[in-house]
Amino acid sequence: MINKKTNWNVTLLLIVGTLFILFPLYLTITISFKTPQEMADNLLALPVNWSFDNFRTAILTTGFFSALKNSLFVTIFVVIFTVLTNSLVAYVIARNMHKKIYKILFYYFVSAMFVPFPIIMLPLVKQTSAWQMDNLPGLIVLYILFNLSFNIFIYVGYIRSIPIELEEAAVMDGASTWKVFWKVIFPLLAPMNATVAILTCLGTWNDFLLPLVMLDHDHATLPLVQYIFQSEFGTNYNTAFASYLMALLPMVIVYVLAQKWIISGVMKGSIK
């Protein structure tokens, strides 16, 4: 018989954790629609009049749509090319893990996950400037490379769980290695591709440090715009929170709609 007894310790912990997540979000939303006077009178209360003036001010102050265009450009291209290239590299490694050189290569890529970004930040800035990569296309290339380590880790585990007999059957029908991957393996990677795409999308959209050290004002992404213009509306919390909410909202929607892919995909990719 199934024990349906409630574990109140775990339940209480989940409730507290949920409040810690929802309370800041509640404040962000309510403050965005309040006037400074309303916020001073009662910080926790709902707005008396739900006004969009703060959002209009934030759009004009930060150049929101220009930064939104830059963020969309970078994120879309990074997601597409990350899925296409990282899965291909992982497939080559996964199907040759019995060879010493590929096993060493796998651990080499995985070890890169443990290298802190601040260690390579200054050399990276110097090198990208010398190669004239301190722009949006250069940023896209770097994101694809930086995502390679973790993506290979989860891709390889998932690919090795796919029966090799499927590939052997395709080869017997005359398919080349290239065709085997794109016609047989890549469609089977759909759950993992979705997971990688979602994690890459969230990470790229929200990243602040790499655009900070690489891009100028004209190419600023949304997180960078929040920092650049902080001095202009730093004391106007209503405008600031409206700006933060607009930058946050797209990724909140993406995560809410796709969170099941993240958990299931990472679990599948972490085991053989």
Rank of each mutant, 00 (worst) to 15 (best):
L12P: 06
E165A: 11
L248E: 08
N54A: 10
D218R: 10
V180C: 15
A175E: 02
A169N: 11
H219Y: 11
T57H: 15
I271V: 15
R56K: 14
T195L: 09
F109M: 09
Y237R: 02
S243G: 14
M121K: 09
L43C: 08
P36K: 10
M267F: 01
V171H: 15
D218F: 02
V79L: 11
S270G: 15
P36C: 10
D216F: 11
P191A: 09
I80R: 06
N86C: 12
S176Y: 03
S66Q: 09
L142G: 03
Q132C: 04
Y143F: 13
S32V: 02
V156G: 06
F64A: 07
T85G: 03
W182E: 09
P191H: 12
I253N: 06
P163S: 14
K268S: 15
L212S: 11
V225P: 00
F55A: 02
F114E: 04
Q37N: 11
I162C: 05
F150P: 05
T235H: 10
I104H: 14
A169G: 13
I154R: 03
L84C: 02
G157L: 12
F109K: 04
V254N: 09
S264H: 10
T18V: 09
M97N: 02
T18G: 15
N193I: 04
F106V: 03
P211F: 11
L27Y: 12
D207H: 07
G203C: 10
L202I: 14
L202C: 04
F33G: 05
V256P: 00
P123T: 08
T30Y: 07
V156C: 12
Q127F: 14
T200G: 12
Y102W: 13
L248D: 02
V16A: 14
S66H: 08
N42M: 04
P137S: 05
S264K: 15
